[in-house]
Amino acid sequence: MSGLTLIFGLFFYVSIAIFLVGFMAKVWKYGSTPAPLKIPQTPAPVSAPGVGVRYLQEVFVFKSLFRGNKVLWLGGYLFHLGLLFVLLKHLRFFIAPTSSILSTLVKFDVYSGFILVAALIFLLILRLAIDRHFYISLASDYALLLLLIGIGGTGLLSRFWENGHVRPSVPEVKNFVAGLVTFHPASVPEHKLFLIHFSLVMLLLIYFPFSKLMHAGGVFYSPTRNQIDNPREKRWVNPWAKQVTAAAAAPAAAPVAAAEEPSEG
């Protein structure tokens, strides 16, 4: 095994570990922090399936964003759609015998990478051009967009820079990735472009759990969106106020056992 392979192999494992552990720790924290009161932003669904529908609309159509800002929605939606397809296509490096759906996707979808990068540039322009967005943007917001543009850009380049040596071949990459996944590291493709692309993705994974990218997990824990609007029908119990309630309620202490356990929210 070459030194380069060792370095990139380790880089991969460390990044993946930080990403997975960090992501799960954050989500665990979101999930385990109590929601003392019912605060759904109404009009809200009055049943659990209703909340499911609300989420489908938020996650697959970005409904609230659409209401809030159509231009931003267009940029944001195209970016995430592009990202989704690009990620799906990357599966071909991980799944051993490429499935037929995947190969069809790879064959026919030649646009998603472009859409991804174009949308990111559009989002960057919005940040710079709209006075309000410029005011609220932080250095880290720009850095993240640039990082993603870097990833998308190097990815696209590796697809089109055909001339012999520059373009890493799919089998080579696949071999390397398969090695990583099965813990039998195969040698890393020694293409500068690939190495840059790969490194940037690893940086993104490391940064992910510590950044606003956690919206991908956090959105599901937003009490204004995930709570059922039924406070009168079903008593919501605040887990940390039991003692207080019992103390304040001299005559009619709440029969807590009979009440709803706060499972959602």
């Binding site: 809030g68 800002n69 919005l126 309000r132 967005h133 005011y135 606003k212 824990y221």
Partner: peptide, 22 residues
Amino acid sequence: LEKYKSLQVYLDICVRCGSCTD
């Protein structure tokens, strides 16, 4: 932060998209 899920999640996940700005 330990007591309010809303606070914990909302302080963490704002992407500063700007939809709320106006």
